[in-house]
């Protein structure tokens, strides 16, 4: 053994070999490793594809759930908040008003739930093979886009039913969808990394999403609030997304404005902090899941 160690530096000098990869202990904050993630894009694609395929393979109604969930919630909300509580709805028929918010909301809440559990669910993978760990929660968010598309079809149907045609502001819709992705990925990264360390997270999530649902203007319009407060309200990223959807599709009079900007900044902040926290905790994942 000793002989080999002594010989080695000579060989290194003569062969002029550069290692492809050096593994050494990492501590503290890490770079995001997006390049590595890009090289593994094929795996990301297959993880999404698997999540989508498996999700509905054993359910009797299959993809229909993606439509049933927002539909049933819409009916319930219309009954209790629209009919009984007589909630204002910016002059839009209440069911449509709620559904337009529920579609991005469900994408968000399902996204954070799925991604929060994703690392623990894929424990066997994390323990047996290397790949950029970020791929796991990202895949579960992207897989949620299929559900979003299905429920979006329902939304279009409802708009046709009420005879509402969106104005030119509809071109902004992809922007709001992107914002929803950023927000749910950000929160999902935080929760998934925390979930590896503290399994308490699993029990917190249903409570968190419920609370968040009512902290977001879904059953009510954000126009209930007056201006300085309304902008502060935008700190909840989903406020900007939901009001943005309504503005782009239904043409509600109040354009989101400064509130939207606050939401956008908040989302990006959550994503960045989430990603760095995730990378910091990543080294312990395979030993802990």
């Amino acid at each position: 053994m000793e002989e080999i160690i002594k010989l080695a530096p000579i060989a290194g000098a003569a062969g002029v070999q550069e290692p492809l990869l050096v593994l050494r202990p990492r501590r503290g904050w890490q770079r995001l490793g997006l390049k590595d993630l890009w090289q593994y894009r094929e795996l990301l694609y297959f993880l999404c594809w698997r999540d989508i395929k498996v999700r509905y393979k054993q359910t009797a109604l299959g993809v229909a759930w993606a439509i049933l969930q927002p539909l049933m919630t819409m009916v319930l909300f219309s009954l209790f908040f629209g009919k009984l509580a007589k909630m204002p709805s910016d002059g839009i028929p209440y069911p449509l008003f709620v559904l337009t918010a529920l579609v991005p909301w469900m994408f968000f809440s399902n996204g954070i739930t799925q991604s929060a559990g994703s690392l623990v669910e894929n424990a066997s993978l994390l323990k047996k093979v290397y790949f950029p760990r970020l791929a796991v929660p990202i895949a579960s968010i992207i897989a949620g886009c299929v559900d979003f598309l299905c429920s979006f079809v329902l939304l279009i149907g409802m708009m046709l039913f009420y005879g509402i045609v969106p104005s030119a502001s509809v071109v902004w819709l992809p922007f709001f969808l992107a914002l929803a992705c950023i927000a749910s990925l950000g929160v999902g990264l935080w929760l998934s990394a925390l979930n590896v360390q503290f399994r308490d997270v699993r029990y917190v999530i249903p409570f968190l999403t419920q609370l968040w649902l009512f902290a977001t203007p879904i059953a009510y319009p954000s126009s209930l609030l007056s201006e300085p407060l309304r902008t502060v309200y935008g700190l909840n990223p989903m406020v900007g997304v939901v009001e943005g959807f309504r503005w782009a599709l239904l043409g509600t009079e109040t354009s989101p404005g400064p509130m939207l900007l606050v939401s956008a900044v908040a989302s990006v902040l959550v994503l960045l902090t989430g990603a760095f926290y995730f990378r910091r905790m990543e080294v312990t994942f395979s030993d802990r899941v």
Binding site: L21, L23, R24, P25, K128, Y130, S286
Partner: peptide, 25 residues
């Protein structure tokens, strides 16, 4: 690369494929 060393280092001079279990995933 599944877990990290506590000390020391490993230099790899090529693409690594590892098979620690059959049927992973």
């Amino acid at each position: 690369r599944i877990t990290e060393p506590t000390r020391g280092q490993v230099s790899l001079y090529g693409r690594v494929g590892s098979l620690l279990e059959v049927g992973t995933g």
